[in-house]
Simulated assay, not measured.
Amino acid sequence: MAGEKKGLQLLDFWVSPFGQRCRIALAEKGLPYEYLEQDLMGNKSELLLRANPVHKKIPVLLHDGRPVCESLIILHYLDEAFPDKPALLPSDPYARAQARFWADYVDKKVYDCGSRLWRLKGEPQAQARKEMLEILRTLEGELGDKKFFGGEAFGFVDVAFVPLTAWFLSYERFGEFSVEEVCPRLAAWAKRCGERESVAKSLHPPEKVYEFIGVLKKAYGIE
């Protein structure tokens, strides 16, 4: 795909928390890009299929026509490809390793468990609720009394996790719990992050996310 349009393009889907990570990172770095909304509910575009032939999913960052796939890899790439811009990862090797660990934890745990909350019923849903509460408490334990996951600076783990806060309302409704009651420090962190311009412009209201889950449930035949 080399030799195609110069600059940065983001193949994305409006409500995707994984795409929103990339939008927040690009905003934090002040990098201009072209947003290319993809139709994931119908026919996937030829551009997406060519850019990500392995997984055939968003987000994909095109840099001078060359594709970079997977949201956390895109965040790493932006740090390395634009070293003159504010870094998401800390400079200390140990701190970097810790940031990667917790971003990976978010990646593997939160969205998958949340999906089971709205897809399942009965005992499987109750198990998903139990797991979600454990996940959120674990993340709150890591956050502790810090302003952000990396300390005073908004960084890699915050960017990885904050898009999923727009899904909290849905998780609460399907799981019948309150994030603010169970994890008040995590709820306060989410509010702090939401006040950042990069986050506010990238996320959609929680009610819109809840409506989208309703669309997904109908599409999957879930009552």
Rank of each mutant, 00 (worst) to 15 (best):
Cys113Arg: 13
Glu181His: 08
Ile222Tyr: 11
Leu136Ile: 13
Val179Trp: 14
Phe18Ile: 12
Gly214His: 03
Lys218Asn: 10
Arg196Met: 06
Glu123Ile: 06
Glu28Ala: 04
Arg173Gln: 13
Leu117Ala: 15
Met41Lys: 01
Met132Ser: 15
Val179Ser: 11
Asp39Asn: 01
Val15Ile: 11
Gln125Ala: 15
Lys56Trp: 00
Asp112Pro: 10
Gln38Asn: 00
Leu40Phe: 01
Ile24His: 03
Ala160Lys: 12
Leu36Asp: 02
Glu172Ser: 07
Asp107Leu: 14
Gln9Ala: 12
Phe82Leu: 05
Thr138Val: 05
Gly175Ala: 12
Leu164His: 15
Glu80His: 06
Asn52Phe: 02
Leu78Tyr: 09
Leu49His: 01
Glu134Ala: 15
Glu152Ala: 05
Leu164Gly: 08
Tyr220Thr: 08
Ala51Leu: 03
Ala87Tyr: 08
Phe149Val: 05
Ala153Met: 07
Gly194His: 05
Val182Ile: 14
Gln38Tyr: 02
Ser198His: 04
Phe13Gly: 00
Asn43Glu: 00
Thr165Arg: 06
Leu36Asn: 02
Lys121Pro: 11
Lys109Tyr: 15
Leu26Gln: 04
Ile24Asn: 00
Ser16Glu: 07
Ala51Tyr: 02
Pro90Asp: 01
Pro93Ser: 03
Tyr33Lys: 04
Leu61Pro: 10
Pro206Met: 06
Phe212Lys: 04
Trp189Gly: 04
Lys44Ala: 02
